[in-house]
């Protein structure tokens, strides 16, 4: 081997070392908070105050998890996160189903049944993806009040469905536009009508984007805080609001282990979805860059 070749190889190896070293260091940085949350939630409060932060617990205890789930005080009630977890589920499931279904049919219409002004309509809807919700909170509160939906789960379902339509329509519109129009034309000649084409031809072909839309909506709605804190109070709050209340209780010795367990409980549903279907999650994320 010539010296030139040898030094080239050494440079290459050094480069690989640098690449892997950087990637691993960054990975540690990104994993650290999760690690800290988990180990803290498994420690006793005494151990935490004795100064153990990043290390493994001396004795694993699920005390903090039990407390966060069933006993922690939120406001005046001391029932833990459980009822709020249920609230979030009751809010998320119908809102995800509704907004995805509506987005699917909208995307279908905007690509396969184009009409004059369809692009304008799409543009109108698209801006909803980037709406700072602060600009609509006040009137929405008024509307929910007059519909007698203030502080209720159905009220939140309505809000999340309306503001979810923009994103789900974007997902399905960008997906259906890649399906050749000839397919709908063939179905038309076969005698299929508007709904028949949607259910028999388009929807079965849209499975991947249905998953993307459901995951995206699930993550968004589960993680929402602004609507929850603005439109609900006390017992009807979603889990993010309850978590924030637990953490911001200032009485007595701060129970960091309970805080971390509570944060983990709030994070687990979306984390599980992410781990199971990360690929689809990324697709939803990058679809925000409109063309996807």
């Amino acid at each position: 081997m010539s010296t030139e070749a040898r030094s080239a190889r050494r440079a290459h190896q050094f480069g690989r070392l640098f690449i892997y070293g950087s990637l691993i260091a960054l990975a540690i940085f990104y994993l650290m908070p999760l690690w800290v949350m988990i180990v803290t939630s498994l420690k006793s409060l005494d151990e935490i105050y004795s100064g153990s932060f990043i290390g493994l617990p001396q004795a694993i205890t699920f005390e903090a998890w039990e407390k966060a789930w069933g006993q922690a005080c939120i406001g005046t009630a001391c029932d833990g996160l459980r009822p709020y977890f249920v609230n979030s589920l009751l809010m998320v499931i119908p809102a995800v189903a509704l907004s995805t279904a509506i987005g699917a049919i909208n995307g279908y219409i905007l690509t396969k049944w184009r009409f004059p002004g369809a692009n304008f309509v799409f543009g109108l809807m698209l801006f909803g993806c980037f709406l700072p919700f602060q600009a609509v909170i006040l009137p929405m509160a008024q509307l929910l009040g007059s519909l007698r939906l203030s502080g209720t789960i159905p009220g939140l379902v309505l809000v999340h469905t309306v503001y979810g339509i923009s994103f789900t329509t974007l997902f399905f519109r960008n997906y259906f536009i890649t399906i050749p129009d000839e397919l709908t034309r063939a179905a038309q000649i076969d005698g299929a009508g508007f709904f028949r084409i949607f259910f028999s031809v388009m929807l079965p072909a849209a499975l991947p984007i249905i998953v993307v839309s459901c995951i995206w909506q699930f993550t968004q709605i589960w993680n929402d805080f602004l609507f929850g804190v603005s439109f609900t109070a006390g017992q009807s709050s979603p889990i993010t609001v309850a978590l924030n209340n637990i953490v911001n209780v200032t009485m007595g010795r701060k129970q960091y282990n309970v805080d971390m367990a509570a944060a983990m409980i709030a994070a687990i549903p979306t984390l599980v979805v992410y781990i199971v279907a990360g690929r689809y999650f990324v697709r939803g994320l990058t679809a925000g860059a409109v063309k996807g």
């Binding site: 034309r185 000649i189 299929a192 072909a205």
Partner: peptide, 27 residues
């Protein structure tokens, strides 16, 4: 189109991707 008594073959074939060949033909 469905009332015109015609059939059409497309450039991209336009086969329904989620159906089998048989289902495509019978649709």
């Amino acid at each position: 189109p469905k009332d015109r008594d015609i059939a059409m073959v497309f450039q991209s074939y336009a086969l329904y991707p989620t159906m089998t060949v048989r289902q495509n033909i019978e649709f």
